[in-house]
Amino acid sequence: MLVVADLHKSYGPVLALDGVDLQVEGGDVIGLLGPNGAGKTTLVSIICGLRRADRGTVFVNGDDALAHPQRARRHIGLAPQDTGIYPMVTARQNLELFAELSGMRRLAVADQIDRVAEALRLGPLLDRKAGELSGGQKRRLHTAIALLNSPPLILLDEATTGADVETRAALLEVVRNLASEGSAVIYSTHYLHEVETLGASVVILEKGRVMANGSVSELIMRHGHAVVELEFEGRPPGGPQGFEVTVEDTLMRIRTDDPARSTTRILGALGADAGRVISIEIIKPSLETVYLSLTGRRFEAGEEADVMAS
């Protein structure tokens, strides 16, 4: 469905994508993760032809998206990071416009609108002006536009940012259903637990490179050891012998397979410095420890805004 190979993109001296390779099949859900400036939005923008690549190839459903972006776009539904709807017309009229721009016949438009409205719980809101909807409702309408015409590749760039609980639940359910119907979904998100909940495969981007790519369970197996994180008053002391230790500011992180027992040993080994420990947190093996292991820092919700999104 989507094949990205050796994709490069720079903005002046800033390297946004540095040889990205990615392959997505129909039915896959890919959670795209990475810190500020990792290149997520740039990658999404190039796939749907909003930005030009410096080098590399992108094929969408067999169409060369760099040489013939117009052709490739027929296979793509995009919900960009920033909400994009027409506030002066109704939700239905927003959907009608984009349905017709996708090439759908007018007779089929009403059915498609009913389908996406039901999926995203927009039914009772269809005849209200989009500008009068709440933030979460606008977000659902924004996402619904991407789903019209059942595109085989759906790109959702931070779809749940700022969304309420109902919206978030509806969006996650829609993503699951789309994948089960055979669409490939690339889902960039702030929230690691959403990726875990979706059972999505994960692509971690860091400085324009793919750091890791695989299912959540595979990545946890490979990189996801438990971590004991100690916060010190002042600079942490030298780490206890026999452990893999990393230090970041006032934090000491110790990788272990048995955090409960290790914590007692670690505190004992710290001696007098144990008195300077402010807090202890055990981070169980999860996508978060995978991220920590690969990037050396914890994933924080809200650090997603890509440098080129502005």
Binding site: L50, R73, I76, L78, G84, Y86, L101, S102
Partner: peptide, 16 residues
């Protein structure tokens, strides 16, 4: 309104 990129990402051409 943030709709420009949506239009550009649609199947419509620049001419359309």
């Amino acid at each position: 309104w943030g709709t420009w990129d949506r239009l550009r990402a649609s199947a419509a051409t620049t001419g359309d």
